[in-house]
Design a protein around this nucleic acid. Sequence first.
RNA 1: GGGCGGCUAGCUCAGUUGGUCAGAGCGCCUGGUUUACACCCAGGAGGUCGGGGGUUCGAACCCCUCGCCGCCCACCA
Length: 884
Amino acid sequence: MLDKTFDPKTAEPRLYREWEASGAFSPRDDPAAPVFSMAIPPPNITGALHIGHALNATLQDVLTRFARMRGAAALWLPGTDHAGIATQMVVERQLAAEGNIGRRELGREAFVERVWEWKERSGGTIVDQLRRLGASCDWSRQRFTLDEGLSAAVRKVFVTLHKQKLIYRAKRLVNWDPHFQTAISDLEVEQREMDGHYWHFAYPLEDGSGEIVVATTRPETMLGDTAVAVHPGDERYTPLIGKCVRLPIVGRPIPIIADDYADPEKGSGAVKITPAHDFNDFKVGQRHNLPMINIFDPFARVNDNAPAAWRGLDRLAARAKVVAEIEALGLLRGIEPTRHAVPHGDRSGVALEPYLTDQWWVDAKTLAGPAIAAVEDGRTVFEPKNWEKTYFDWLRNIEPWCISRQLWWGHRIPAWHGPDGRVFVAESEAEAKAAALEAYGRDEPLRQDEDVLDTWFSSALWPFSTLGWPERTEDLQRFYPTDTLVTGFDIIFFWVARMMMMGLHFTGEVPFRRVFINALIRDAEGAKMSKSKGNVMDPLALVDAYGADALRFTLTAMSGQARDIKLSTQRIEGYRNFGTKLWNAARFCEINGCVAVEGFDPGAATGTVNRWIAGEAAKASRAVTAALDARAFDEAAGALYRFVWNIYCDWFLELAKPILNGDDEAAKAETRAMAAWVLDLILRLLHPVMPFLTEELWAKTAAAPREGLLIAAAWPDLPESWLDPDADAEIGWLIALVTEVRQLRAETNVPPAARPALALIGAGEATRARLARHRDLIVSLARLGSIEAAPAAPAGSALFVIGEAAAALAIAQHIDLAGETARLGKEIAGHAADIERTTRKLGNPDFVARAPEAVVEENRDRLAEAQNAKARLEAARARLEALA
RNA sequence: GGGCGGCUAGCUCAGUUGGUCAGAGCGCCUGGUUUACACCCAGGAGGUCGGGGGUUCGAACCCCUCGCCGCCCACCA
């Protein structure tokens, strides 16, 4: 006997162990089986599972389990990302918290060792959390972006791209993070609106003939000014072009140059140029061959290129000092408050500094071409498709990708510097040495590049590096390209686009045929969840409270949203109840001896109720299959929910009760077999979304011994031919009749215990036959005393229309004539309004002429029905009034 | 400045190519010890589908426009 409810706490870990031990998570060996493969977006090892991971993992697991049940060799490859900055940050913080010496004092090697220790200890947390959700990943293939194989792939890619001149080293302006003292890529820059000022400074002309006013929000950068630019067509300044101003404070003469960049509309029309500290100025500097004076050290403190008094000052202190001195010099021409965007590091949260340094770059423009083409011609498709626009926009305007980071945790750049500055890029130190020997003709000391690669560099290789590339492994040949990538839109640039570029470049094939973009989860107020806001929902707490299945079902049902999902616990509770509902349906089956019958053919059932549910089952299973095929997860969940609760429980089991309690043994046997068979079907269909509860029921309700686990059971494929229009119409009629009686009873306050008689007036042959077949069912479900066909309505009956007949419920003692007359009046008015509307429509010649015939026909039927119903109710009301 | 979403019942959301008086869950109200289930059952109230205009025989759905809300990209004179 099943317990009263499912207990996820004890069952989930047990079932997960069974799955894992059974080997079901690994793709089946059958070489003839179709292949389904997917690589997980590797979560950061520093991360704890958040609700976004839960959504992402649930959808992937649904796809994987679905494919597996359909017979595919299904591989969902798991792993984690080393997350350069994030991890380094965590361990540095830990060192600080322990009162330990810092990273620098510890030294590179010892520090990296510390990070590895941390990784071994804590890096597996998120993986265990995925297990708790029920993720059926193939853990035997689990990878880590910094493991040996993936590192080899990274070196191979770096060296190859370098040979192809698609990776190069260059001194350029980068986004510099003064907190971490590293370059970061454009994507890691976050613009923040800040209050600031425009300071207007006068720069005196060198010849003393006047001054030129420039404005800036960053006064401190003037220490590095090397020109003032004006627009060539700006007549106010044409006489000054070619002259010099003397840069205040610094005393350096700098030229006034003509450049289109200067906008005569903005400020004074003259703009100070600081090539080493502004991206636009950098370009101007290149055009005019201006000196580029870097005035900051890596901490964004003023360096030795500035006058002695300034050295070592923090940039903000420098700003205040510049303003003060300009003012003291009588050169301050105005201050106005302003709000403007200031770039910040997304990790550090500090204002970034455009900074001139040597970095490694990827020629992203060249790699982007094939990545654009592959989506244009549909080799890879985005779902929903509108994300392709985002993808294209970014790739078509892509800038070189800065891949070097001045960090310690990550893939060290495989480049070795010779004493004369020559660089040897090679997959190993030995190869680099060999190349150096050849180049120099003698042994020279080499120094490996200090930098590591952007974390996303290794992530970009994920779909093929995890399968063993560059070796031509069996896995690579079998599972690449992968089928689907499921991920959030927030990393289309960071990750998806770069995987496309690298995948196409190195394998010649797209890394995945489909990119399914899942929504972002918000809290109930729609705010992005973040730790600082304290609105983070911990999926594990939700699993503890409601079970993994309830959370999974909720996320699946809500996954249709385009942009974000607002999650509320009430919703999860509702789906927990859904699981319990199914559990209890299984209990009902158990109590009533509904067990699987060997050789039972649902398509050959004879009872109307059974033929009907077989058709409904076929309909539902086809709908769920189609929805999952189309990645319409929410539709699949909806179809399952309705079928289980509103069809199977609400009607089929209720209709089965009188049969199961009756004495027609043949009907009983068939109904039992059918109830068991449909339950089995439900378990299969629901398994991808609610794996735990279904697996438990599969084991516990098995009358006949099951072969193996549900996770490895076959997905149902039911023929459309099971849909039986006659059974459908008949049960539809029965349901309508019962519902009408219930409504009428409720409206007229018939006591629940009362058993009124129901008379059908004007029932045709077919209806009488239906009545005869289902008399017991109707009587029991509608709580009637009796139901008979009759020539006329008994006095004191309440009436409604069902099909061609009128139904009279004998409830004289419960109704008052006036009340019932009024009720009928309302009904009649409703039909009258309908008749009016439809008549008007049909009377419109344009409608009849232009609307499709089917629509016109539909309206004619509708009109006839309404007229029929109205006539009957009017007759009933007339009789009532005669009584009064 | 460029782009993308959203605005449908008190709340959270469905509404497929325009075609039965607009749907679900939760919440609310009324009733219920029907031997699977109160994590339940039966019934009910509740919406001028953000505003305006247009196309059409017909618009929540298509077009234009306005208004909010949110996000992405660009922008430190």
